[in-house]
């Protein structure tokens, strides 16, 4: 392995200064980064270990009612925080549907947002990948691309963002708190990840040195808690990334939808907020026909990027199912197989 410098700052300011040097990368759990380094996909000159920074591991409710989650909170800690899970059940469900128990115990909230795509060509250093090497080409185009993007892709990159966690987060207007060379700023999660367009080498809008210190879920988001679900279709029952997933959340009044939130995972290089679907749902009676219209609206711009046309129809069906699950109410507890079609007792048909 290539030699690299390892630094362990004691304050966020020190960390930002250290990571502002070219070739630096932040290290938290390393559950993605270390694999990428071992595989020769990335080769940072310097790792800035932020796991010893204090104050970044809290889950707190702020005065305005929003919930702030420190970047170093572990995925499992957040999912099992009873207060958090009761207010944001779809987020807890999404977290628990990801990876494995061991990985969830290690992986952090901030790291989850910044995990890289699982495109096999990105991981295979011998393949051409514009995300790995700007301008190198994209071997996923015309290659093994059954699971690639159907929304927001470009000829330069058809990869997807793999996070489950981000899908309900983006539906709930989560804000990302960043500290950088110029101080603190907020970035809406929906604007954090970049679609590939002409520059797929860029994953996010973060600048050199920028560090995610926390995310905030707005107070308004917990009003969806009674009708809030995450559903994930995958090719084995656990320990698999989503083929397609959806978060669906509703505010209902006697069967009428006051407000809806819908987002998709596994379809694009970012967690995909389906605002067209939300607009269509709001103000209408929650029923199957409406859900189908919403699903159609959400996928209106979708097109296959390879042998993956089935994902478009699958995404429509997942939206319909997730909406009907949300409409019938959040279960009292997350099922043993979270977000699964096989979570006994939660499969309903509209």
């Amino acid at each position: 392995m290539k030699s690299f410098e390892y630094v362990r700052p004691t304050t966020v300011r020190e960390a930002v200064a250290a990571a502002s040097e070219p070739g630096s990368a932040y290290l938290a759990a390393g559950s993605n980064l270390l694999d990428l380094m071992k595989g020769g996909v990335v080769a940072p000159d310097r790792l800035v270990d932020i796991t010893h920074l204090t104050g970044l591991d809290r889950i707190e409710t702020l005065a305005n009612g929003s919930v702030r989650i420190g970047a170093l909170v572990r995925n499992a800690e957040l999912a099992h925080d009873a207060h958090f899970a009761s207010h944001f059940p779809a987020v807890a469900e999404a977290l628990l549907s990801g990876a494995t128990a061991q990985l969830r115990n290690a992986a952090t909230v901030g790291g989850n947002l910044l995990q890289r795509t699982r495109c096999g060509y990105f991981y295979d250093a011998a393949s051409a990948c514009n995300k790995r090497v700007a301008g190198a080409g994209c071997d996923a185009r015309g290659g093994d691309n059954r699971l690639h993007a159907v929304l927001g892709w470009s000829e330069n990159c058809i990869a997807t963002h793999p996070s489950d966690f981000c899908v309900p987060l983006v539906a709930f207007d989560t804000v990302v708190e960043v500290e950088g060379r110029a101080g603190k700023r907020d970035i809406p999660l929906d604007q954090l990840h970049c679609l590939p367009a002409d520059a797929p080498e860029r994953d996010t809008v973060l600048e050199r040195g920028d560090m995610i210190v926390a995310i905030r879920l707005p107070a308004a988001a917990d009003r969806f808690a009674p009708h809030s679900r995450y559903l994930k279709v995958r090719e084995r029952t656990s320990y698999a990334f989503a083929v397609v997933s959806a978060a669906a959340a509703l505010r209902l009044d006697a069967g009428r939808i006051l407000e809806a939130r819908v987002a998709l995972g596994g379809v694009a290089l970012k967690p995909w907020r389906a605002r067209e679907a939300e607009l269509l749902l709001a103000g209408n009676q929650a029923d199957a026909a409406l859900f189908h219209r919403a699903a159609t609206a959400a996928l209106v711009d979708a097109k296959p990027s390879g042998d993956n046309g089935f994902k478009i129809e699958l995404a429509r069906r997942i939206i319909v199912r997730a909406l009907s699950l949300a409409a019938s109410g959040t279960p009292a507890r997350v099922a043993a197989l979270p977000a699964s079609a096989f979570a006994s007792g939660v499969t309903h048909h509209v």
Binding site: V233, R234, T237, L314, R317, V320, F342, T347
Partner: peptide
């Protein structure tokens, strides 16, 4: 098999 989603267990 989920009749809509096709997932198999």
């Amino acid at each position: 098999v989920d009749p809509d989603l096709g997932q198999i267990r």
